[in-house]
Computed example of a mutant assay.
Amino acid sequence: MPMPRPRHRRTWIATWAVLCAGGVAATAALNASSTPDRPPEEPVSAQCRAYIAEVDRQLAEAEQGGRRDRVQAYAGIRNSGEDDCDDELARHLREIR
């Protein structure tokens, strides 16, 4: 079996390098385009903001008194037309932890 010429070998190596670079670039482009967008944040009602501020005040008061107690907070009960702040309160408490 005859040995391949060196020029032929260089062509294969160059082709392989170009294909690898193209694959890396395509993978990077696909990963960047498939990143999910954050859903737009819904505005928090004034009642929920006031309730979250009250929970923050109670947490700060407990921490200032040297107590590391657990705080129990209710986000509200759904009544006709009233906001339910459970998602906003949970998100806020996760952020400050």
Rank of each mutant, 00 (worst) to 15 (best):
M1Y: 10
M1C: 05
P2F: 12
M3T: 13
P4Q: 06
P4M: 07
P4R: 14
R5C: 01
P6G: 10
P6K: 04
P6H: 01
R7A: 13
R7H: 14
R9T: 09
R9F: 02
R9Q: 14
T11Q: 07
W12C: 07
W12S: 03
I13L: 01
W16R: 15
A17D: 08
C20N: 01
A21Y: 07
A21S: 05
A21D: 06
G22Y: 04
G23F: 08
G23A: 06
V24A: 12
A26M: 04
A26H: 01
T27F: 08
T27C: 13
A28K: 03
A28F: 02
A29Q: 09
A32V: 03
A32F: 08
S33L: 03
S33F: 03
S34K: 12
T35E: 15
T35K: 14
D37E: 06
R38M: 15
R38V: 09
P40G: 05
P40E: 13
P40Q: 09
E41H: 08
E41L: 12
P43F: 07
P43G: 07
V44L: 14
A46N: 08
Q47P: 01
R49H: 03
A50S: 05
Y51S: 08
Y51I: 02
Y51Q: 15
I52K: 09
A53G: 00
A53P: 10
A53N: 10
A53S: 01
V55N: 03
V55E: 13
D56G: 01
D56L: 04
D56F: 07
R57I: 02
R57A: 07
R57Y: 10
R57V: 03
L59H: 10
L59W: 06
L59Y: 05
A60G: 06
A60Q: 14
E61N: 01
E61V: 10
E61H: 10
A62V: 09
E63G: 10
E63W: 00
E63P: 03
G65H: 00
R67V: 10
R68N: 13
R68A: 11
D69P: 01
V71P: 04
Q72P: 07
A73H: 04
A73Q: 08
A73R: 02
A73N: 06
Y74E: 05
A75K: 09
G76K: 07
G76M: 00
I77H: 07
S80D: 05
G81Y: 06
E82S: 14
E82Y: 12
E82W: 01
D83K: 02
D84E: 10
D84P: 14
D84K: 00
D84G: 15
C85D: 02
C85N: 08
D86M: 01
D86W: 13
D86K: 06
D86N: 07
D87M: 13
L89S: 11
A90D: 11
E95D: 15
I96F: 03
R97F: 08
